[in-house]
């Protein structure tokens, strides 16, 4: 998937996550801010990496502001942000 522009998805509501994707030429960088970073930080980053891998994204800056979202929410938000960044609807 080719990223064309910066994109965001999600909200800062409790149990949600705000995902920002910035296309760039450098290696992948994932910044996570989370209320549950101590307990679930590694799992969240692993999940996001897996989704990026699946979509062939290798160069991007991903900023995550997590408010305790469950895995399926994180997955949906990251995919939405990716599609928006790639200007694709499916």
């Amino acid at each position: 998937m080719e990223l064309l522009n910066r994109a965001i998805s999600g909200t800062m509501e409790s149990s949600d996550i705000m995902v920002e994707i910035i296309p760039w030429d450098k290696d992948l960088e994932i910044n996570l801010k989370s209320d549950v970073k101590e307990q679930y930080g590694k799992q969240i980053i692993a999940l996001v990496k897996a989704i990026l891998d699946e979509n062939g994204v290798k160069k991007a800056c991903i900023n995550l502001k997590d408010k305790g979202a469950l895995d399926f929410v994180i997955s949906a938000r990251v995919k939405t942000a990716l599609y928006r960044a790639a200007r694709r609807s499916q």
Partner: peptide, 10 residues
């Protein structure tokens, strides 16, 4: 089942 297993606190 909903939350997954958390890491242990250090």
């Amino acid at each position: 089942k909903i939350t997954g297993k958390p890491e242990k606190i250090n």
